[in-house]
Design a protein around this nucleic acid. Structure first.
Length: 347
DNA sequence: AGGTGAATAT
DNA sequence: GATATTCACC
């Protein structure tokens, strides 16, 4: 009897540990994205996982007497130790990234572990540039990410990242502005920034329903102002609606069935290419898009080459429409009205 | 707060 | 010269 009990107990513990490990690995996947910036962090989590794995089997013998313990402690101790450090530095951009990515990833629903992993891996691309908007002269030598091995280095990075954030963040801009005679310095919409913008747009139901404020909040970019978002949105809308019927529309001039994805125009190929398996997961976000769902404008023939608005904004090649996989939201004549080629001067 | 046109920087 | 971004106003 007792044996049975302890067995169950053990099994439970084991199970728990297993779950914990899963969580850890999940964590690792997330962090993997930051492998450049947080090499040590990644390393430590990895170590923790390994330790855990190592100890898990041992438990079989240990546990009978020692009970619990498992490697939880080990890990618990480690993680905070490491993560906390990073958490503090990630005050704005990084931590937000994670949050956001989580959110969005969840929505994609398609959870092919492998794909997921790769996807995240790709993201490390943009992460190479922690600064969301580039200010070349102020960029710090990011070259100090040569796989440091001592905690000291972590601190070093910590500092440089801080600077980065400050410099690129609101403060930096402010200073710049003053120096510049008052006029704000142009915000450079890096592809990453724009990606966030698009993501926010998706979540809000498209460029015509999303408001600058909402977008800004969703983007969670520190230092970004409503005005900036507003103007970007405006530009986006303008580009987006180009009625230049250069639409590969299969001659369905009457029933303009645009492929409107989350209010974002997306090449048919993209949306039909499936992989959107769980694509229709955007569910919740559907907000009231119903009516406006179709508002998304006709496909922008092509964004100016040097603009973020190119349909190919996605720097991460191969990731396909990774930021665009969304629900296909109908299409209807409604758009013609909301998309009116030219707004009539109201006044 | 959002939309728009003018002004201005790149 | 064209465009993107910011400003100023409704």
């Amino acid at each position: 009897m007792m044996k049975r009990l302890s067995n169950m107990d053990y099994n439970q513990k084991r199970k728990r540990c297993g779950q914990y490990m899963e969580a850890l690995e999940e964590e690792r996947r997330k962090i993997h994205v930051f492998q450049r910036e947080l090499p040590i962090c990644l390393d430590l989590v990895t170590q923790a996982i390994e330790t855990c794995k190592r100890e898990l089997p041992e438990m079989a013998t240990d546990n009978l007497y020692g009970q619990s313990e498992c490697s939880e402690q080990t890990i618990e101790e480690r993680r905070p130790l490491v993560l906390e450090q990073f958490l503090t530095i990630n005050d704005s951009s990084i931590s937000n990234e994670e949050e956001e990515d989580e959110e969005f990833d969840d929505e994609h629903g398609t959870h092919d572990p492998d794909y997921d992993y790769e996807d995240k891996n790709m993201k490390s691309d943009w992460l190479k540039s922690v600064q969301l908007w580039s200010q070349p002269d102020l960029l710090l030598p990011k070259e100090e990410r040569l796989q440091p091995k001592l905690i000291e280095t972590v601190v070093k990075i910590d500092e440089s990242m801080r600077k980065d954030l400050i410099v690129n963040g609101a403060e930096g801009r402010k200073r710049e502005a003053e120096k510049d005679g008052g006029r704000k310095q142009r915000r450079c919409w890096s592809s990453e920034l724009h990606r966030r913008f698009l993501n926010a747009l998706q979540h809000l139901g498209g460029p015509h329903v999303a408001t600058p404020k909402q977008i800004r909040e969703l983007m969670k970019v520190d230092g970004l102002t409503n005005d900036e978002v507003k103007s970007h949105l405006q530009k986006y809308r303008l580009h987006t609606r180009r009625p230049s019927q250069t639409i590969p529309n299969n001659g369905n001039s009457q029933t303009q069935h645009f492929v409107v994805v989350g209010g974002l125009w997306v090449p048919q190929s993209d949306y039909s290419t499936g992989k959107t398996t769980g694509g229709a997961t955007t569910s919740s976000t559907t907000t009231t898009t119903g009516i406006y769902g179709a508002m998304a404008a006709p496909p922008p023939p092509q964004w100016p080459s040097h603009s973020n608005f190119r349909p190919s904004i996605i720097v991460e090649e191969g990731s396909e429409s990774h930021s665009e996989e969304v629900l296909v939201r109908c299409s209807s004549p409604a758009m013609s009205s909301s998309t009116g080629n030219h707004y009539v001067k109201k006044n």
